[in-house]
Every structure is written in C-alpha cells, then in structure tokens.
C-alpha cells in the first residue's frame, strides 16, 4: 500500500518542496483549500474564483500541458455537488497533478482557463454539454456532443436513464 496524505497541512508538511505545492502555497495561499496525496497522485483543491491564477501559477511551476478537464457529479450532495478536475502534465518533470474546484448544485459556474491553455476550449464545452457547468468568459460556450436543441445534461446523476413506463 502506498502512503496517503489527507488534508492541506499533511501535504504541506510532507511535500512542501514539491514545486506545485510550493508554488501554490506561495502564490495563492488563501485560494489553496485542500490537498491530498493518494495512490501516487497529487490533488490540489482550489477556490473556484482563483482557478485561472492557479493555472498560471502551475504553468510557471513547470506544468506546461493541460491534459484533460472533466467533472464529477456527487449527487445527492448539494454543497458542493460538482467537482471539476483539471489534469496537468509537466513535460520536463514527467509527472502529473490534478487541480480541482468544488461547485454548488445551483448555478455552477467557474471561470474558463482557455486564456492559459487554449486546448481547454473543447474540454470545457464537453463539461458544459454533459454536466451543465458554465465556464465564464469561454469564447464559445455551446454544446459539443449533444444536439444543439437538447434539454438536460446527460452525465448528471439525476438525469433519467429510463424512458416512460
């Protein structure tokens, strides 16, 4: 079994030298809400309003490639209900980190990170389409996989998976 570190304090104490942790603690101490080291993966929880600043900070720390943006619906939990996960990769350090923001059930919105990584364009559109999470100031916040006139967001846990009986 690999070691597990739960909570910001534990991660700061054990992994304070890690470039991502150090950069975040130095640049955005207030926005750095939580951290976890589990199964050799580092997860850093960021305040939703600060995600763009966190992205820029991570980019300066060497995480130059945005690999993926996706979401998880923790229904029936309501506050917070949605989690948006950003997977960042460093080509030079050859490792990955995960940033995540937690969003409430009603009107989930988070600023777009297309200004930091243009590749977020498609990923964020997919999250919007399937989860109904809006990305503020996104250049093209429209459905991508489902038809334009579709109602509802299929990957939400309360989306019906059966028809009428």
């Amino acid at each position: 079994m690999s070691t597990t570190l739960h909570g910001k304090q534990a991660v700061l104490a054990e992994m304070g030298q890690h470039p991502a942790v150090a950069a975040l603690a130095a640049d955005l101490a207030e926005a750095f809400q939580d951290a976890r080291w589990d199964r050799d993966e580092l997860t850093l929880t960021i305040a939703p309003r600060q995600i763009v600043a966190a992205g820029q900070s991570m980019k300066r720390a060497g995480y130059n490639f945005l690999e993926d943006v996706t979401a998880v619906d923790w229904f029936p939990a309501t506050a917070p209900r949605f989690q948006v996960s950003y997977h960042l990769l460093s080509h030079s350090r050859k490792e990955r980190i995960r940033l995540r923001v937690m969003l409430p059930a009603s009107n989930p919105t988070v600023p777009t990170i297309t200004s930091v990584w243009p590749s977020a364009n498609y990923y964020e559109r997919e999250v919007f389409d399937l989860f109904g999470i809006t990305f503020e100031a996104h250049p093209n916040m429209r459905r991508i996989l489902m038809p334009d006139d579709w109602t509802g967001h299929p990957l939400r846990k309360d989306y019906p998976v059966e028809g009428y009986r």
């Binding site: 589990d38 993966e41 690999e67 993926d68 996706t70 998880v72 996960s85 997977h87 995960r98």
Partner: peptide
Amino acid sequence: SGEVYQGIESSRGQMGYYVV
C-alpha cells in the same frame, strides 16, 4: 473509494482514463 488518472501512449497520442 478514490480517484485515479491513468495515461498511456496510444497509437494516436496520450490516452487517459479518469476513474472515480
């Protein structure tokens, strides 16, 4: 319980599975 992201080099590039 937990979340993992696993990446591999597929024929077309980096494929990743995120399982929660």
